[in-house]
Amino acid sequence: MRVTFTANGKPVEADDVWEGESLLYVLRERVGLPGSKNACEQGECGSCTVYLDDVPVCSCLVAAGQVQDREVRTVEGLADESGLDPVQQAFIDAGAVQCGFCTPGLLVQTHDLLEREPQPSDTDIREALSGNLCRCTGYEKIMDAVRLASARKCQKVGTSE
């Protein structure tokens, strides 16, 4: 089948998609967006998290056909011409990236958290990110990164007002 959807603001089209393929497979293998990761492919690890119409989902659990005519935003779509998103920069600065395989999913999930709640408590952060496994960091630097991104985003808003 043919699937057409919007990925990171651009129209994309994938041909010869087998009905059993996931959105994750289509992103990674058919439309050149391998940033979303394939660590478990059963919705346990969160490393494939993308926005589907502004809602974070595990793209491994979404059938490719379900995204017809919808909007997908992946980790590749977080940065813009002006540079990295504050969440991306904070993950680098705080040392929250080691092997980095969990990073794309965590970035999308954190981005969503800070959109909804710009100043989350530590427990809010832990709840929001509890579906994203990381095996390297012990999560401490990830907590630091989210706090840093929150502070920087709030500061930015404060400055522009």
Binding site: G35, F91, V97
Partner: peptide, 15 residues
Amino acid sequence: LRPDGTLKVKGEFAY
């Protein structure tokens, strides 16, 4: 900072 950090946060690091 890690030399591969930017690639990793942009989803462009080739695993």
